[in-house]
């Protein structure tokens, strides 16, 4: 029922208000004495060198892509897990739904081993 979600909306409003009030209160109450040094990039007290937004390791990108692939496969397991017991009890032995899942996890495992062997999971 959609009405069940109403309290979550209320809580969301409360959370947003809490954050907004805190952020604006500190903006209003705090002193304002900016100086050039205070407003510059913090780099442990020395003059900042170059731009912060530089190239970063390709590994991070790789991890993000692997995450998306595996996470989508995990999402497919949720509906299966929820109906597992009911389905197995109705069917009798539960062998069908088990083998179905084993095939799915087998394919997932193949991809996982491939990523591992190709060095996608190694960080050095």
């Amino acid at each position: 029922m959609l009405i069940d979600y109403l309290p979550i909306v209320f809580l969301g409003v409360f959370a947003v208000l809490f954050a907004a009030v805190n952020l604006s209160l500190t903006h209003l109450l705090g002193p304002k004495k900016p100086t050039r040094v205070k407003l510059s990039v913090y780099e442990s007290g020395v003059q900042p060198v170059g731009d912060a937004r530089q190239r970063f390791s390709i590994r991070f990108d790789l991890i993000a892509m692997l995450f998306i692939i595996f996470d989508i496969e995990v999402v497919f397991l949720y509906p299966w897990a929820v109906v597992f017991k009911t389905f197995a009890e109705n069917e009798g032995s539960g062998l069908f739904i088990l083998i179905e899942m084993l095939v799915f996890i087998g394919i997932l495992l193949l991809g996982y081993i491939y990523a591992w062997r190709k060095g996608g999971l190694t960080w050095d």
Binding site: G12, A15, V16, F18, A19, A20, N22, L23, L25, T26, H27, L29, G30, P31, K32, K33, P34, K38, L39, S40, V41, Y42
Partner: peptide, 26 residues
């Protein structure tokens, strides 16, 4: 914390900089 200077440095992306803490808290 409330009475400390709310410093927004020159080089930041201002809207996102202010929004980020709220995006973690909510």
């Amino acid at each position: 914390f409330l009475f400390k200077e709310d410093l927004i440095p020159n080089h930041v992306d201002k809207p996102l900089y202010v929004l980020a803490p709220a995006m973690l808290l909510v």
